[in-house]
Design a protein around this nucleic acid. Structure first.
Lengths: 196, 196
DNA sequence: GTCCTTATTGAACAATCTGTTAGATAATAG
DNA sequence: CTATTATCTAACAGATTGTTCAATAAGGAC
């Protein structure tokens, strides 16, 4: 039954077609028929695999998600047993984005990236939430919802990355990352030294 | 023939209808016909005033925009000639959001807020860009694109505000604002004390 | 009051997209 | 070869969009 590699692989063809078309004309302007034509696949076949355009995009991101979580595990191991440097995710993300620039600009570029950005935001929020220690949330004076800090960090990161990608990713990942981390960690430090 | 409001303000009727429907069923699911029915306005009339649903929404935000710019001018005057406290926009925004909670949740809530969030983001970016001094961008060691810092601040703010609104705006504006500003200003300070 | 300009209306229109269904076709496993 | 499974083509109803046009009603000018 579950025979391997059917004649063709409509799913892969459709994924690739969506990426191609997103680059060519923007996500929102894409039609199911566009995707099928680009993938050279019957429209019925599309609906036998995915329920909608967003479904197709989300499926593609699930693949990306696994890559990111894997990279994060690897980074944690590489930094030894203790917690690595703070907000380690950012450099990884910037470099990953540079290495897969076309893919990322497909995902994030312009304004069609709502579905993609929401998914990436969720992934990163999970990472940051795990990483934040209680003292990052003002243990002494007022207890600050950890989620506020998570949203702050991830929101800032997404905005910087989006801006960087939309501008053609001129600056080097290390350069962007250093500024981002200085801003973010400086903020966290300001939380810790809570009016003591 | 219901001519009471007929001659009077189709634009206002349509704006209100869009807000109502956004709350009721979410922005994306709304149809031009839905809006016209809700506003009790002919569909032709809609197209004689706006070109699309997004156009209608943007027009509504243009109104908001003027309010914000005005509030900012007032705040600057109130703080005397010198630059008032940094990132003064945030408390204003949080309070304004609380005072118009329904409107803001209409604009931002759920996922239909892409158009609205993009517009608000642009407005705030203009404010922050004006406010950032050159020394906020690392005058000494490396020159950091001001736009990066702008995107960082505004992205973080938008994320925090969205989270706050989506969660029902439990925390008081002053509380949210204090944490946000501590994070943001702490980050800016870290930029100034560039690698000394 | 009458006339003229303007805004709104309802209806109809072509064009597009969606999601579903049915029958035919081709490749593969056994 | 046979049965199975995935695909393709074609067609369908339904919805939405954006446009056009003639009819209608309001407000101001006279």
């Amino acid at each position: 039954m579950g025979l391997i590699a059917a004649w063709y692989e409509p799913r892969q063809l459709l994924q690739r077609a969506l990426d191609t078309l997103t680059l060519r004309k923007g996500y929102e302007a894409i039609t199911i028929k566009d995707i099928c034509d680009e993938a050279d696949v019957g429209r019925s076949t599309f609906y036998s695999h995915y329920t909608s355009k967003d479904d197709l995009k989300r499926s593609g991101l699930e693949h990306l998600r696994r890559q990111l979580v894997h990279q994060r595990s690897a980074a944690q191991e590489a930094s030894g047993a203790g917690s690595g440097r703070r907000l380690a995710f950012s450099l990884t993300m910037f470099e990953h984005a540079r290495d897969h620039l076309t893919l990322y600009r497909t995902l994030v570029g312009g304004r069609g990236g709502r579905v993609a950005l929401d998914a990436i935001r969720g992934i990163l929020s999970d990472l940051v939430r795990d990483e934040l220690t209680p003292q990052d949330c003002g243990h002494s004076v007022a207890k600050i919802p950890r989620e506020l800090v998570v949203q702050y960090i991830v929101g800032a990161f997404m905005a910087v990355m989006t801006w960087w990608l939309d501008g053609g990713a001129k600056l080097a990942p290390a350069q962007i990352d250093e500024t981002f981390r200085r801003l973010a960690i400086g903020g966290l430090r300001a939380l810790e030294e809570t009016g003591d």
